[in-house]
Amino acid sequence: MVVILDLMRMAGALAEGATGAVTISSASELDLVRRWCERTGNTLITTSPADAGLGAVLVRRGRLPDPAATLGPDRLPGARLWLYTNFHCNLACDYCCAASSPRAERRELGVERIGRLVRAGADWGVHEVYLTGGEPFLLPEIARIVADCVRLLPTTLLTNGMLFRGPGLRALQAMPREGFALQISLDSATPDVHDGHRGAGSWARAVAGIGVALGEGFRVRVAATIASPHAADLAALHDFLDGLGIARADQVIRPVAQQGAADTGVQFSRESLVPEVTVTADGVYWHPVAATDERALVSTQIEPLGPALSEVYRLFAEQWAAAGAAARLFPCA
């Protein structure tokens, strides 16, 4: 009984979401703590005395936040499926989280396998597909890959927008307009910053690519990767994109992650990233920003995909409960 009085006193002094410890001396007291938490809407964080040591158990005031409510249903693990179609690229951006470049190994997933992966994802409950690379427009079959994806799920294709001519333009024109969006990278309102990271002349060609895509009737998102965004620079970028006709909701700002080719940037651990299941030719990864990081490797077995999706969801649920608080969301969209 005393342990319940201890719990009452401790909980009364805690703010919602804060945690406190009480000491227990037996398994039956642990069971009592568990039942008290269930009854009163509080959360037992540690599930055995050994978890906290010395008979102390940790209790969170209130329930764990619902991840669907906190993150949004579209950001729950498994809602998005990222596919690295390939790793080679016509650019060699100095912050590329996948270290893509013209010299990078191609490591293509392949048309047939992508079709099977998207089918498996749809069957599991994936809501949308993101195709990225590398530069997907370097693949001659990219229009077919997109069509196969869009037939099953809403799809976004990430591109630098620089290859919309010749075969690239014909591939673009063959892509569906419904259920499909292009996400084109543009880091600044003027060429200097963008070209400084991505190569001379790349800003002008990306802006031209945005114009081509809009002219062809596609929904275009623009994503800027900015290490230390200043308010004035962001305002200038938003004004510029407004002028191009990009909706504010389709103007995405994301930080540089210290991954791949980036020597500096946001550091993260698997525990700090809400997972977005990512498949490359090398395996299934926790998140697209860490698709070359062994620490983020979930499985080297790509197919069947369902078990890996379930495993990531299970690991996230454990992580969410153990954290006792909302995981920090790394915004990579």
């Binding site: 009984m1 009452m8 009592l32 039942r35």
Partner: peptide
Amino acid sequence: DGIGGGELM
């Protein structure tokens, strides 16, 4: 009720 209303102990 907070201490279990006679059900927990």
